[in-house]
Amino acid sequence: MTARMLRVAEVTPLSPLVTRFRFECPEGGTLPLFSGGAHVVVEMPDGATLRRNAYSLISDPLDGSGYEIAVRREDAGRGGSRFMHTHVAVGDLLRVGAPVNLFALDLRAKKHVLIAGGIGITPFLAQLRQLTRLQMPFELHYCARSRAEAAGLSLLPDLPQVHAHISDEGDRLDIGAVLAGQPLGTHVYTCGPEGLIEAVAGTATRLNWPKAALHSEAFLSPPPGAAFKVTLARSGITITVGPHQSLLEAMEEAQVDAPWLCRGGACGQCETAVLSCKGRIEHHDHWLSDAEKAAQQKIMPCVSRFQGEDLTLDR
């Protein structure tokens, strides 16, 4: 992991719940560039706990003077976003990982259709800049409940291809109308709540779109839950995962070396073999197939939890 300490250069509230943070090199200089859709993992030393959350980069991918992210405060979450909102101020130093892109544009596409729900607008803010610079055809649809909550509005360029759908104002996105009649070679990208992703996938399938033309990213943060015990066979220890901690975070706290990349159940890096399981794994990831989830022989420690008597992992 090539992470570096970055200085918080700006903290800008965008809406009651969403704040933008800008990071820069403390000694000046430029940061590695990235591609639209990339995220970084921000490390948050929250007391004794080291939290690592992944956030989409929203700044211009071709501008290495700084990285910008937008963080929505999730009061029911494990505390990472609350930490960002309440503890992080201009001048603070935080460790930020190298950009990783698990939601890249397919550069072969003849046209890109971007569909965002709520805070799911974030990866598209960078992609818009990339598409504009590369002069590629696109259209963007941004769905939000109200103008006040639509943090992305002020960050979106005033272009005819950009459409906001504010449901409080009676404007709901008609997915079928958007997908119908798109030219051959169009790719569609969805980021937002599970329901939106499923609705787009469902409509696309009904309209006979092949799967490879559909891309999605759920902004999945590890859900909190009841505490549980896990035995790590290779390390020869048993650890307890706290209610506001992920299994991956608990392993890291116990100094157990575990690979990871997205920390959101998407990339497959942290896949771990289950040696024995008496109980039920709560799979929250998008990586394992339904059959693999039912078999309970693999787990994604970044987002998944467990209920039952015994869970032993090959780690």
């Binding site: 090539t2 590695p32 190298a98 990783v100 990339c267 497959g268």
Partner: peptide, 11 residues
Amino acid sequence: LKFLLSLQQGA
């Protein structure tokens, strides 16, 4: 392939 898909910038 699995390894290369997760290859990171700067590494």
